[in-house]
Amino acid sequence: MSGPAPEVKSVWRLIVLALGFFFLYMPIIVLIVYSFNDSQLVTVWSKFSLRWYKELFVGVQQQSEAIRSGVLLSLTIGFFSASFAVVLGTISAFVLTRFDSFRTKTLFSFLTTAPMVLPDVIIGLALMLLFVALENMTGGLYDWLNGMKVEEGTLWSGIHSALTYCASKIAGWPEKGAFTIWLAMVTLTSAYVSVVVRTRLQEMDNSIEEAAMDLGATPLKTFFVITIPSLFPAILSGWLLAFTISMDDVVITQFVSGPGAKTLPIVVFSSVRRGVSPTINALASIIVLVVSVCTFIVWYTMHRKDKKRQREYGMMSVRQKAEREKSDTPKA
């Protein structure tokens, strides 16, 4: 057969398409449908109701409250870990691409990406052990200082009491909770940011920064005025990636979270063990809605921009092209 492939109105095509969509979206549709289910049991349909949405927002059940605080905690941790990971990741990417090769460059490069390839279980375990060890050390320091016999009224006793006071403040640090989860998430996600930003940095034209320096901007100023704005798309996508990863991480968070800090995924997981409440369906439906709306907005604005650019270009072919040509000819 030659020429353009003729349009085959095959039933098979439609079936395959339908199956594809079915596999992708059926679970989500089921979840959304059952979020409007009145029944206490997730899998048995009784009648339409919004009671689980009400329960989610204003319910006094222990689980609803846990979910609400979990969402808040996850968002907070996601926001702060993504923000800090962006700073660390960008710096490491910059060092790895822009600095002359130094002795441990390959090692450093490997170490920054290691959290991406290491199993989460290992990272979680390692971080947990580290935090426990730190906790023991700070606690031990306080105990040691506290137990020391000191003569009253000397200079040393003054220093000692100051030291003991400081040690009492940090004793038991870092307590497992939101702070340790944040640390763990920064460790994990800065690796992703580093990779994303590094790719962009590598394809960026070096001479743009050189031009800025050539025109009198110091290296530091060049970094903030030229490099960062040029990297902005990569930094933004790195931030979003880091936010998403730390939002829904379960494994590492399990290891480093304390009794007080329950992120949303942990709440969901622990509630599954006791039987899923339809409140979670309601929450999931809301998340699906929010994500869809966000995606649509991003798609729509990009589409508009594209259209606009195309229009501009189209106009250029008639008016501006002539203008271009005219301005390319040397003036008498």
Binding site: D205, I208, E210, A211, A212, D214, L215, T218, P229, S230
Partner: peptide, 18 residues
């Protein structure tokens, strides 16, 4: 370079895209 009274026009022009 940022203190030299020397300016360069780059091959790629290196105009600041933003």
């Amino acid at each position: 370079p940022y203190k030299r009274p020397v300016n360069m026009m780059f091959q790629s022009y290196a105009l600041f895209p933003h």
